[in-house]
Structures are given as C-alpha cells and as structure tokens.
Amino acid sequence: MTTTDATSTAPVLSVRDLVVEARRPDGAPLRILDGVGFDVAAGQTLGVVGESGSGKTMTATAVLGLLPPGVSVTSGGIRFADRELVGLRESQRREFRGKGIAMVFQDPLAALNPVQPVGRQIGEIARRRDGMSRAAAGRLAVDLLERVGVPDPAGRARAYPHQLSGGLRQRAVIAMALAGQPRLILADEPTTALDVSVQGRILALLTKIQAEDGVSVLLISHDLRVMSHTAQHVAVMYAGKVVERGPTRELLHAPRHPYTAALVRSVPAVHSRSAPVAPIPGNPPRLAALPSGCRFHPRCPLAVERCRVEEPVAREVEPGRVAACHRAEEVLP
C-alpha cells in the first residue's frame, strides 16, 4: 500500500508499522507510537501533522535514531535509501545523520554553536563529509548562505548566531543542512518560532531547495496552514497513531477521518470573514490512559457503539487515501 501513486520510484524514507515504547518506573511498557506508517517519496514533502502528545516529534526522533534513554523501537521498520535503520549501531547511524538525513529544528539558536561564526559551522559539515580544505569549506559556506537568501553572505559567514535575526538564523541552519548534501531534510516545526512575515519565506525556501535539488522533506508541524502550502502528502497523527494520510489537497477538501475534519474546522481564517472556529470538545488523551476502541471516540461527533469497543484498522478508503475510522465514508468536510 502506498500513498505515492504519482511516482513509481521507491520512497526515500519508508516507515512501517513502527512501535515505540518507553519503560515506566513500574516496568510496564508505555506505547508512545503504535503502528505508525508512511512513505516520503523522492523529491517530495510529506507533512506529519498533530497536536502535542500525538507522537509526531517522537516519530522524527525515531527516524534519526535519537530516542531518549529508556525509549526504544520495539517493532516495525524505518527504511532510508534501501537501508534498514532500526537495529543499526550508533556508529553506523552517525553516517546517516547530517549527510543522508539533515535536520532543521524549531529553535535555530539551539541548533547553532553560539561561540563559532556560522560560516565555520556550515563549512565544518562539508569538511566532515568529504574532507575538503578549510579554505574551500569557507567558500562553500558563503555560497550556501547566498543560496538560502542571506544578504551579504560573506559578511554574515563571519557573524555569530546571536548577531543574526531569527529568520537569518534559520536560513543558516538550512545552509548547514545543505552542506551535507542530504537526500532527506527532516524539518521539525521549522517556522513555529518565527514571525509571521518570515514564516512564509522560510517555507518558500524549503520548497525551492526541494524543487532545485530534488531533496525530500519530512515536515513536522502542528499547523495545517503550513502543510497546505508546503506538503504534497500529509499524515495526520493522533495519540500515537496515524489516523489518516493522503494527498494534501484531497485530504483537506474531503477529510476521511473525523479528527482531520475537526482540525480543519478549528483553524481561524485570515482572509475571509468566516464562521467562528468550531472547537473539538475535550482534550487529547494521555498515553497512559487511552480510551477503549478508537482513541478519538470520546471527542468524535460520529462515534457509535462499535467505536467504543473496536479499534479501527487503517484501511485504504479510496485510491491513495488511508484512514483509520469505522465511519470514514460518512465524514463530512
């Protein structure tokens, strides 16, 4: 089953039935991700959207092999460029991080070394990649800063992170990601900490890089607005599961899971006089106390007895569209 019917090539990243568990103090396992699956097609962006606690960041962390101590993949697989990542040793992992898979996080200050000029940090990645000389790495850093739209790139290469605005810092981080010539950029809330007027430009930059370099992007965000402008495909996560996935446009026009539909309705409109947002009642469940049956049923307007007792299995509801809902065919946009 694939969500990328448009491309016949193998996906760059394929996550299959991924289960991630944490050990609780009493020894019992706590399931954080429960059967997560999706593909990131070559040269495309897959958006993973969900609220806090849905498992979207844990999914990214698992892909990077950076799960916190006490948390581990207990079953399922993560294939990247025809290599299975689950079960690799840390030393084998390291060759993927930064090179095959590059990262762009929410807070660029946390990703940058505060006591080193940004140009040095960008060049360092390239030096580690193919051992180029310091001078060549310095020139490459300036080129990359120019490519990501930093004005006065030669001057800015000598700047320290604190001397740059939030938008420029995030551009420097993206330049750093590019220095590794990755096949996949993993971007976790890359615009959430930025001002409104800068957000769009950073997303445009990621889109441009993707188009020019054919790099794939796994974009993680709580914001459906970001997805609608950036991702070709979206996976919606709720309480540790992917509840719906499919092409962005169809998914937003005609959601097949009540949670997706509710998320769409809770986004306030900027450019039109819209009806008041329609809140989803209740709160997302705690993983330690999941409801029976479908995890969304206590908040779902369509819930019936079956939803309370039987957990829905993800199924293809129409070509390229997967939803985990007993009543997927009855969801109204």
């Binding site: 769009g200 914001d223 991702a231 446009r249 769409v264 900027v270």
Partner: peptide
C-alpha cells in the same frame, strides 16, 4: 504574508523571494 489554510494551494505556493 499570513498563512491561510488553503486546500487549493498547489505547493510550492510561494513566489521565490
């Protein structure tokens, strides 16, 4: 520059700026 939830936006939806 405000992002809108726009199901009809065809990515990439931004002019290169």
């Amino acid at each position: 520059s405000a992002l809108e939830l726009d199901p009809d936006a065809t990515p990439p939806a931004f002019a290169a700026e």
